[in-house]
Simulated assay, not measured.
Amino acid sequence: MSSAVSQGRTDAESGAAAGLDARVVVRRGGFALDAVLQVPAGTVVALMGPSGAGKSTLLGVLAGLTGFDEGHVRLNGRALDVSPARRTPPASRGVVLLGQDPRLFPHLSALDNVAFGLRVHGAAKAAAADGAAQWLRRVGLEGMGGRRPAHLSGGQQQRVALARALATTPAAILLDEPLTSLDTETAGDVRALLHQQLAATGTTAVVATHDAVDAVALASRLAVLEDGRVTQSGPVREVLAFPATRFAAAVAGLNRVEGRADAHAWRAASLVLPVPQGTRHPSAAVFRPSDVRVVDGTPRGAGEWTARIVRLEQTPAGVRVRTADPDVAVDVAAERAAGLAPGDRITLRVDPADVRFVDAPVGAQS
């Protein structure tokens, strides 16, 4: 199955695929990135993966800032990169990359920062100033155009950077964890603004993030990148509901337990669950940590098992108990966790009705 995020649509007039179409191979020492990314025009795709998976490297190649060893990059049917030796310079690609640092010119006002991008693209001085003022209004900064970056908050600086990027009508915008350095409230405001403006402008976008909220709030599709490979992709809801890897399950706030099924039941260590009628070749069970209970006594049937406590973690609602044999997270109230310690063996229970079965990933899912 293809590891593409989505299949590009055909432009009826030119016959070229509209949107972003890339295959990127980068080899750096012991790290190798080999990823295929296809984003239909006007679609927002979230790119998630653990640190070191290759998200920033992939975005750097798409923006023309990072070299690659094999592959290609096409945008709306235009070949930006045919090979490592035939590449379009960053300024001529029609692609904007925004990261955690807004990279505003410190000596220019907010208005002049936005106008700068328009001037570079050929707008006259007066037209650029008018356009910049309109964009500052769109991002909620009317009346602040005269302020320099040093006199703007982090969230306001990100708004200026977004206005500068979108004012030039880029063919695609790449966002590399742009909300990470913002406080929770400010990040929520900027996230809502991003959603509004990306939808209003119909901009093709790739958002690299570690936060599932960004994927849910901004994107219609999600690609999971692990160890330089796309391990799962598809609509956000599907990927989060049926995670193909433990990382994807963690993003979705779910347990994903690998096991084996026979003619009678599905098993993982001492956890045994009945397989619903009609289920084909289940190899992993998926369920919420909050659906697991710590119970007294020994296991008494399907859905009850013993496990060893690995560690205890604080959560806003209580304590998360991490166990092994198999690896399962259990959410319990703080008072219920009293007396539990790493190394203890406990009995757990999950209602089989709360469990979904999924197949193990074979390549990427879509």
Rank of each mutant, 00 (worst) to 15 (best):
P352R: 07
L198K: 04
G278I: 02
A364P: 06
E185N: 12
A353G: 11
A338K: 14
L141G: 02
R221C: 02
L98I: 13
F247P: 00
A284E: 08
P276Q: 03
A307C: 05
L111Y: 00
D21L: 12
V292G: 05
R159K: 12
A167H: 01
G30E: 10
G259K: 03
H121F: 06
L20I: 10
R267P: 07
A265T: 08
D112E: 14
F287D: 02
Q314P: 13
V24Q: 01
V272E: 13
E335S: 15
A171H: 12
A126C: 09
H151F: 12
P90F: 00
D21S: 09
Q314N: 14
D69M: 08
A200Q: 11
V45H: 02
G339R: 10
T306G: 13
A165V: 07
S233G: 14
R27C: 03
T231S: 12
L218D: 00
V286G: 08
T43F: 01
T298K: 14
P289T: 10
G140R: 10
R293Y: 04
H107M: 06
L312F: 09
P90W: 00
R221N: 12
G54T: 02
V358D: 04
G99M: 06
F31H: 10
A63L: 09
N255W: 03
G343N: 07
A269P: 07
T57K: 10
V292R: 08
A46E: 05
A284Y: 05
G94Y: 03
G155K: 10
K125D: 13
G131W: 07
N113M: 06
V213G: 08
D331K: 04
V73A: 10
G343T: 09
A167W: 05
